[in-house]
Write a protein that binds this DNA or RNA. Structure first.
Lengths: 346, 346
DNA sequence: TGTTAGCACTCGGTAGCATTGAGTGCTAAC
DNA sequence: GTTAGCACTCAATGCTACCGAGTGCTAACA
């Protein structure tokens, strides 16, 4: 359906969406004519609104209330009417100065980014750190904690640090450990984790016949060390901002949205979808997704460096979100994080 | 005020508290006689209740409602009437089997403990990890991330691992780094962090005259590496369980309690107070504390090993909490975590 | 003297009902 | 094509009456 709207209809739709974003209440024809100076009477506006409802851009909660934009209405607004202003240099500078990344580990950076972004946008912030499996091997080190327990430190090309405790043969000497890490660092650097895994698996198969004792141990150790725990890191900040929204003002809605924000798994599924495309992505309403975030919109952008660490960040809020404000914030934040990742990578 | 209650009063108080815990509603004299088979008429019960109210154990929200226990009433109930049954071995076993700690880092263990404890108790769980400053130095290692950036891995006696990125003199060779970590591990092992700091500060003062270049570098590096970021690790699990409680059913109460649970700082202050004493501690209502958790009770216990890492865990819920169920869970969980810490320490 | 039955009273909660006001759709006039 | 007018709808508000759980008090009972 090629929905061409004439200029008047566009103006009125835009006015309705804006008013609704500002007030969270159905907006009526009178209110429109009062607040926006079209030279039209309420009755004329009503005619247009009626058409817009016919076309599916608006709906009315009941006969004698005003209209609210539908999902489709928001879509049209965002795609055709919304002008996203870029952040001014001053604003960017201001945003940058909110951050203090000095000496922070990746996790902390993610958390901090979420916190600041959420605070700026005034909506709940989501950050999903790059997945372990999507990183590229750079370095691995072993530190002995006790006889049979080793701390593995894995550093990816993008500077992501992950550590993990594994059990290991107590008879390994420190010298051997060092040799093993040297060996692994020589062999595996620059490979993606799936490649690394494949290589290890292959060599372990051949190992029986060809490899010496040390190599066998190295392979076993790295196999354990690089096992993916599948633990995704999702950081949620400003949860309570969500509850400030009038659309989640009833206890039931509050509980529902909160349970969703608490369930990392659901968030991961949501955020995963935005890793498909570049740039800022906007998911409005429950479009083809879980009903869990019914009535919510999600504005996300993935971040990455050239070395392949890919994460996603974004903001979640009511469908009636202040898109023109939030979109540039998410966009810029994602670029910022990408730049930090680059820097970390060297 | 030595509030001696005769047996009948005790029985009735106990019945009221129990009924209130179960129903969250004011309980009246009739309800008492119906549900508990005292051989008393409602009128007699009323007399006793009136006395109990006089003494401050009960209060009534308004004239024609039943009574609810006051803070003092809950106190008396917990101190004198409550019989905390221990967990049976089967239950302990069941609890133990909920956990899978294999290969987990300290952070993950804390998070997992909170999750399971919260799920078992059916209230919101809080875990505060041992503070960096309260640990005892065991080992430090440096891993070069890029020319001027080092990853510091600090391991405490109790097995707590902390890592951190610091900037360092790019001219340091790997060999020198190794010498530095050897030097620090030799010098500092077994000292508490405050002791370590004092020692470093003192030596840095003397350094100008006496120490060689490497030692100077070692001291500078360790000074940066062991700086406390003061980042306390508090894990909150099962936030939404709190909202299920009828006492937090209005949107305003929900927002208030949620903001509190979101503010790590407030939680830290609360949890800090329970590090004073051993065993399970119970904070009822807002007793001498922030009004933020008005109407809440906090059941906590600290955990620690002999090497000094001290953390706190507990459960927060409405004053009307199922104490007899929660207390043994918190108690056992704290012991469990202590044992894990011991094991980590070797 | 302690216990109980009876009774008047209190007060939050709910259901019913009229009123109000913002909003709509329709029609006829401009 | 636009607008003024009008009848209509419906959530929200306020009012009243009523119900019921609960209390305190008093008088009778064991």
């Amino acid at each position: 359906m090629a929905d061409e709207l004439n200029e008047r209809s566009q103006n009125i739709l835009e006015a309705i969406v804006k008013d609704y974003i500002a007030s969270a209440e159905p907006v009526g024809s009178r209110a429109i004519t009062r607040r926006h100076s079209f030279n039209l009477s309420p009755a004329s506006v009503r005619n247009v609104m009626s058409d817009l409802e016919e076309m599916g851009f608006l709906c009315s909660p009941h006969t004698s209330a005003g209209r609210i934009p539908t999902e489709k209405g928001f879509h049209y607004y965002i795609d055709s009417l919304l002008q996203v202003r870029d952040l001014s240099d001053a604003e960017k500078q201001n945003l940058l100065s909110s951050y203090r990344f000095q000496g922070m580990k990746m996790d902390d950076v993610m958390q901090e980014v979420g916190r600041v972004m959420s605070g700026l946008a005034n909506y709940t912030g989501l950050v999903m750190a790059p997945k372990f499996a999507s990183t590229v091997f750079r370095q691995i080190e072993f530190i002995r904690l006790s006889h049979g327990r080793l701390l593995v430190i894995y550093v990816s090309e993008s500077g992501l640090v992950q550590n993990k405790v594994i059990d290991a043969d107590p008879s390994l000497t420190n010298r051997e450990l060092e040799q093993i890490s040297n060996y692994l660092n020589r062999e595996l650097t620059g490979m993606s984790i799936p490649q690394v895994r494949a290589k290890i698996a292959k060599q372990l198969q051949q190992e029986r016949s060809r490899y010496d004792q040390l190599q066998k141990r190295a392979l076993n150790l790295s196999s354990a060390a690089l096992q993916d725990e599948g633990q995704e890191l999702v950081f949620v900040s400003g949860t309570s901002l969500m509850l400030e929204q009038p659309e989640f003002s009833t206890p039931e809605q509050m509980k529902r949205i909160l349970r969703t924000l608490e369930s990392k798994q659901q968030l991961i599924e949501l955020l995963d979808r935005s890793q498909q495309a570049d740039g800022v992505q906007i998911f409005i309403g429950n479009q083809s997704s879980h009903a869990e975030i019914d009535g919510c919109s999600l504005i996300t952008s993935k971040f990455s460096n050239k070395k392949g660490a890919i994460g996603t960040l974004g903001v979640i809020g009511p469908m009636r979100m202040d898109y023109s404000q939030v979109i540039p914030i998410v966009d810029f934040t994602a670029q910022l994080v990408s730049r930090i990742l680059e820097r970390e990578a060297e």
